[in-house]
Amino acid sequence: MAIVLGPNRYGKAETRLVRVHRDGDTHGLVDLNVSVALAGDLTATHQTGDNSGVLPTDTMKNTVYAFAKQHGVGEPEEFALLLARHFVRTQGHLDSARVTVESFAWDRLGPHSFQRRGDHTRTTAVTVTREAVQVVSGVTGLVLMNTTASEFHGFVKDRYTTLPETRDRILATAVDAKWRHLSDEADWGKSFQGALDAMTSAFVNTYSLSLQQTLLSMGTMALTARPEIAEIRLALPNKHHYLVDLSPFGLENENEVFIAGDRPYGLIEGTVTRDDVPPAASEWYL
């Protein structure tokens, strides 16, 4: 039996980048967390420690900062595409570059004053190979809640089931969504906001009999609103809220006072796709 090296990659993770764009007295601010991973013929460094084909990860970090100065930083998809294409073009022995970006939003308070927005994080993952380019946008930590218009009943029951059926419950989640684009060209800012608005609207306007139903509604509305998106994957943790028993105090609790549960929690995951889209260049949802 032979033991061989399997798929591998290496890179620089979580390079923190803050870029100030100065336009007179009015400044622009971009706040990113950039990770780079390269893959290709790296057998020698694994087997013998021959580093002749290894671009130092410190060089990757420096490239991020140099490109931020030379090219500026616009939409995270644009910056990730620029970096990934550079690494594939300049490192002939490598097959692919994957650049992922977390984008932290700041709200403007004045010409050069900002307040960090903490309700969600925009994400980007760009993979460039010698044959294809794949752009995946997304959002994580988007916390949503409906205080009614949600039920859960008719589920399977066995000897270990204690959960009561409900016709009126809180439905809360922290959305983690990723969506694959049909091409490497789009109005990235408009596309991101449009997908975000569509998913949020679907959550608000879906009378939910299950979180799975809400997931499909959110994915469907995002694909309907944004024709440039091929498919979308959603992971929706069910942020449970439990009624507090107020009977010891002689009080009734008519769906008004809850304990916000932390863990464990239900986790609903699913992919919503168009039936005629070309296949992904890689496992885009990872």
Rank of each mutant, 00 (worst) to 15 (best):
L5M: 10
P7Y: 07
N8E: 10
K12M: 03
H21Y: 10
T26V: 06
L32E: 04
L32W: 08
V36A: 13
V36E: 05
L38M: 00
L38C: 01
A39P: 07
A39N: 10
D41N: 06
Q47I: 13
Q47G: 04
D50P: 01
N51M: 11
G53H: 07
T59A: 12
T59W: 06
V64C: 15
G72M: 01
P76W: 01
P76A: 03
L81V: 11
L81E: 03
A84T: 11
H86L: 02
V88I: 05
R89F: 13
R89G: 04
T90F: 15
G92P: 14
V99D: 05
R108H: 00
R108V: 04
L109N: 15
P111N: 00
Q115T: 15
D119T: 14
A125S: 05
V128F: 00
V135T: 12
L142P: 08
M145N: 11
M145W: 09
E151F: 04
T161E: 08
T162E: 14
R167W: 08
D168Y: 10
I170K: 03
A172P: 03
H181C: 05
D184I: 09
A186I: 04
Q193I: 14
F203D: 06
L209R: 11
L215K: 03
L215P: 02
M221N: 12
A225E: 14
A230N: 09
E231F: 09
I232D: 02
P237K: 10
H240I: 02
H241L: 14
L243S: 07
V244Q: 06
L251H: 05
L251G: 05
E254V: 13
E254I: 14
N255F: 08
V257E: 06
Y265A: 13
Y265Q: 10
D276Q: 05
A280C: 02
Y285K: 12
